[in-house]
């Protein structure tokens, strides 16, 4: 009897291990973990050849033959239909208001009128202009993309040049091969272009300063670590890399010719310039008329005053922060990323 109970007890103890034993025998999970970064090129960027391939497709077998040769109006098309307008047949596509279209591909220019056009994917081999208050999931134009007032780009927009007219809401990604120009305030998440700027032009710093900051250093700058809060006085030039384990204030017109890393808050007074990269674990505030030559990264908030320039034409950089606020005219060469929220205030532009 006791032997039976003993073995019953053993069975009870081993019951929870049955799934494990089954897994050992069955071997259902053998493949290695799929790792990221596997592809050579990003699969989601739309290179030129895609546009030309599409144009070619449209020429050879137009997916929908349209009788009219001039402009076409599309109204209330709902569903997963593909509207393709072959090149040569038409040069311009006007979409009526309150239209819902799954995908639109056009060889010509696309003009979207005002108010609530829900378009899943819109692709033009020429250019696209949108009206007021449209919701766009994906927009790709080969040349110019003009996004009208209060538009929302939910996922992705690409073009050669992008003009954002007013109060655009960009929770997705906007990429331009050349320029992204803001004509007014906007909310953004990720902007990428050779140059991201406001419509108003400005020169950041004197020509002499620009030259000094632009020239690559020939020597390895010396590194200085300061373990408490620090202030660099006005008009002081610091030739080297500076690491501050506290807050730092850069005085008016002062210059740092190396990199800068700050553990606390960084306050950059008017006209101050930094040649290298800037890292901060705290908030960064640029008072205005500042110039940063390298990458600008913070874990927290970044606030850029008017006439601030980051990067150069020949040096594309990244501006990355948890939240970014830009007051007034600005120029960023490269990539502007706000992990949580990015705002370009409209008042100063």
């Amino acid at each position: 009897m006791s032997v039976v109970v003993f073995f019953l007890g053993l069975v009870m103890i081993s019951l929870p291990f049955i799934p494990m034993l089954m897994e050992i025998v069955k071997k259902s999970d053998l493949s290695p973990l799929q790792i990221s970064n596997q592809t050579l090129k990003d699969p989601r960027s739309v290179p030129d050849y895609v546009f030309w391939y599409l144009a070619h497709l449209l020429k050879v077998n137009g997916l929908i033959e349209l009788k009219e040769k001039v402009s076409v109006s599309v109204s209330t098309m709902v569903g997963d239909s593909l509207l393709a307008i072959p090149a040569g047949i038409m040069t311009k596509l006007d979409v009526a208001a309150h239209t819902k279209v799954a995908r639109v591909i056009s060889a010509g220019k696309i003009i979207l009128p005002d108010y609530s056009n829900h378009i899943q994917k819109i692709l033009s081999l020429d250019s696209i202009q949108t009206g007021v208050e449209n919701n766009l999931n994906e927009v790709h134009a080969h040349h110019l993309l003009t996004i009208g007032k209060k538009n929302k780009v939910i996922w992705w927009a690409t073009a050669e040049n992008v003009i954002l007219q007013a109060e655009a809401h960009l929770p997705g990604k906007v990429q331009a091969r050349k320029e992204i120009v803001f004509e007014n305030g906007a909310q953004f998440h990720l902007l990428q272009g050779a140059l991201i700027k406001s419509r108003i032009n400005f020169e950041s710093g004197s020509a002499e300063n620009q030259e000094l900051i632009k020239t690559p250093s020939t020597h390895i700058p010396h590194k200085l670590t300061i373990s408490k809060n620090h202030t660099i006085l006005d008009q002081v030039v610091f030739d080297g890399t500076l690491i501050v384990k506290g807050n730092l204030t850069l005085g008016k017109g002062s210059r740092v010719l190396g990199d800068l890393k700050v553990y606390g808050k960084l306050m950059v007074e008017e006209g101050a310039q930094i040649k290298g990269n800037v890292f901060s674990f705290g908030n960064i505030r640029f008072r205005g008329n500042n110039l940063v030559g390298g990458t600008l990264v913070t874990n927290r908030q970044l606030r850029m005053g008017p006439c601030t320039q980051v990067g150069f034409e020949d040096r594309k950089i990244t501006v990355s922060a948890k939240s970014i606020t830009i007051d007034g005219p600005f120029k960023v060469y490269g990539l502007l990323r706000a992990w949580k929220s990015g705002t370009i205030t409209s008042s100063a532009l």
Binding site: S36, D42, R44, S45, P171, G172, K173, Q175, R177, H189, L190, Q192, A194, K316, W339
Partner: peptide, 16 residues
């Protein structure tokens, strides 16, 4: 030109 293309969606899945 695009080098990295991490976006909101990728933050929700991998690697973050």
């Amino acid at each position: 030109m695009p080098l990295n293309n991490y976006s909101l969606e990728e933050r929700l899945v991998e690697p973050f």
